[in-house]
């Protein structure tokens, strides 16, 4: 076991754990935000740079700090490592800058975006973003594209996290889309339009942290914060059948996988469950789902991240430990 200290909280983790996963073990506000890392997708992470943290002490053997901020999602913990996330002014400054970078080409069309209310980028910019943008130039623009009958791509909103590429590669039997071109004109695309169609393709909607990939069957039907999230399951040959029904009255508007507090689904579900069974009678309803994430759907209880509100509870925790 390795001992690692993150924002003055010490925890023991197994060898091969990343800083981010160690922080998630501690939980709470010291967990760095992650837009591209997805624990269930191999190879994901390291791209968005929102989870950058400062390593103040590399290890017991090498007490020097690391010269640059490191991505916590892909940096492994070493014994005696000291990490600063929200206790480092530099980390918070750089995170602000990264959020600004992510937003300069984002259309900020939340009012007409189906992802609004459960969008990682929305949460991230609420917590770490600047109040107004310094960007006055033109934004890149792409026309929306349909990936088959069920999935819509709004490339304007994409932050190129590559999650959908990894998901298609790892959980569907064939990946038919990828990233074309490079730099800020890179786009998620299929070679043949309307092509993504297989039993698990709907999961690329769930892994998308923003509103780039959305469910066409839910498009403009309702806002997520008006719907009621219900855990439910059914017998399914293809997947676990464990889903969340997003209901309004007695009607099922949308079906997704069960997402945890970091926006990751517990189990990937098949397209039959996601798109084809929208009658209440198809499902055994388990009960209301508690949404843990700070988001519009958690009853508008947004809390702004301020230094006092972060550091004070940590100091309390520190004293308890001593």
């Amino acid at each position: 076991m390795l001992r690692v200290t993150i924002d003055n909280i010490t925890i023991e983790v197994e060898e091969g754990t990343t800083i981010l996963n160690a922080a998630r073990k501690i939980g709470g506000k010291i967990v760095p935000p992650a837009m591209c890392y997805y624990s269930k997708l191999k190879g994901s992470g390291g791209k968005c740079r929102t989870c950058l943290v400062k390593v103040a002490t590399t290890s017991e053997l090498d007490p020097r700090p690391l010269p640059k901020l490191v991505p916590s999602c892909s940096t492994l913990v070493q014994n005696g490592m000291h990490v600063q996330n929200i206790t480092s002014e530099q980390v918070l400054q750089e995170r602000k800058a990264i959020v600004e970078f992510l937003l300069i080409n984002h259309p900020l069309d939340c009012p007409v975006c189906d992802q609004a209310g459960e969008c990682d980028l929305q949460n991230l910019s609420y917590e770490h973003g600047l109040e107004e943008t310094r960007y006055e130039e033109e934004r890149r623009e792409f026309a929306p594209v349909n990936f088959g009958e069920k999935i819509k791509l709004h490339m304007n909103r994409c932050i190129l996290c590559y999650r959908c590429v990894y998901a298609a590669e790892q959980i569907t039997n064939e990946r038919v889309h990828g990233v074309l071109y490079r730099g800020d004109v890179a786009e998620i695309s299929t070679f043949v339009e309307n092509f993504i169609d297989n039993d698990f393709s709907g999961n690329i909607i769930d892994v998308c942290p923003v509103g780039a990939l959305t469910d066409r069957t839910f498009r403009f039907k309702n806002r997520v914060w008006f719907t009621k999230a219900m855990d439910a399951h059914r017998d399914c040959e293809k997947c676990s059948g464990k889903v969340v029904l997003w209901m309004f009255g007695d009607e099922i508007y949308r079906i997704t996988g069960r997402k945890d507090e970091y926006g990751e689904v517990e189990e990937f579900i098949c397209n039959d469950c996601r798109f084809e069974n929208k009658n209440v009678s198809d499902w055994i309803i388990e009960g209301l789902r508690k949404i843990k994430r700070s988001s519009v759907i958690s009853q508008n209880h947004y809390e702004k991240l301020t230094k006092q509100s972060i550091i004070k509870p940590i100091e309390g925790k520190m004293e308890q430990q001593e």
Binding site: G46, K47, C48, R49, T50, A97, I98, F101, L102, I104, N105, I159, L160, Y162, V179, Y181, R182, G183, D184, V185, A186
Partner: peptide, 10 residues
Amino acid sequence: SCGQCSPCRE
């Protein structure tokens, strides 16, 4: 820029 990580891409 390859467009992989956000600070460089944007």
